[in-house]
Design a binder for these strands. Structure first.
Lengths: 137, 137
DNA sequence: TACTCTAATTGTAATCATTACAAATTAAAA
DNA sequence: TTTTAATTTGTAATGATTACAATTAGAGTA
């Protein structure tokens, strides 16, 4: 996706497409690794020398509010950000501390959500040891 | 459950049953409100004037490691603790900020957990507006 | 293009939950 | 008891996140 296209997406979601917001969203679209604010900051400060940590949080907040990204709190210490907004769960490996996606069907989500509550967003977090770390143990 | 009984439970889970740990576990057993460390601290400092915030965290960590309680991170700002360890999900109301339990069936959990990952613990977090707040809006 | 107004960015400082640490206390075994 | 190891506790440190005010950039208008 080109920067121009990303700008259009932001605009169509009511988000003013500043250079920084476009850069943050582009980074998340091309790095599906659930990066932390600090990781994003270090990656983008090279492109924008005046880039600020605060801008990462501000941009992410604007993108999350518009429904373009999700904030993941599977890690108690720090937030992670994810451009994938379709149905999926998150798995955190306690050994390598990476976060992976795994598929979650529409039916199982429907089965989960309590009927009497409204306007629901859901997160499925699973913690354990990933296949790669299992092999190396 | 008496203090004596709680002591036995801790001991049988390999946790040295100190007064403070018994008090924290008793508080969580009798208050299924998913309290924060601060809430527990304020409640117990009345019983133990020398009670410390650090002890809440230490005790909770020991209890969680023994599998007696769970740490809930549905709230990005602060941890919550829950003596309920059977299958259930957590719902956070964005209006009153309370956390409620809701049932999650064994099958839906099995359907969720990715097969290739091991030693899994899972958390299902749903966010929205609770029935009580829906009525008052 | 220049102008204007509003919104966004940025750097610094503050906040606040959580943890580190070392001294004092307690638990449990001998 | 006495001893020893584990736990508690108060204070200080940590570190992610936010508040804030000054600067800068975005987008519409003439």
């Amino acid at each position: 996706m080109t920067k121009q296209r990303i700008s259009d997406v932001l605009r169509s979601h009511g988000v003013c497409p500043t250079q920084q917001r476009v850069a943050v969203y582009e980074y998340l679209l091309t790095h599906r690794t659930h990066p932390t604010a600090d990781t994003i900051y270090h990656a983008l400060v090279q492109e924008f020398p005046s880039f600020s940590r605060t801008t990462v949080y501000n941009s992410a907040k604007a993108l999350a509010k518009a429904g373009l990204i999700r904030v993941i709190t599977i890690d108690a210490e720090e937030q992670r950000f994810d451009a994938g907004i379709e149905n999926h769960g998150h798995f955190r490996c306690t050994h390598c501390n990476e976060v992976f996606d795994f598929p979650v069907s529409e039916e199982s989500v429907t089965a989960l959500s309590p009927a009497s509550f409204e306007g629901n967003t859901w997160d499925v977090y699973v913690t354990g040891v990933c296949p790669h770390c299992q092999a190396s143990l």
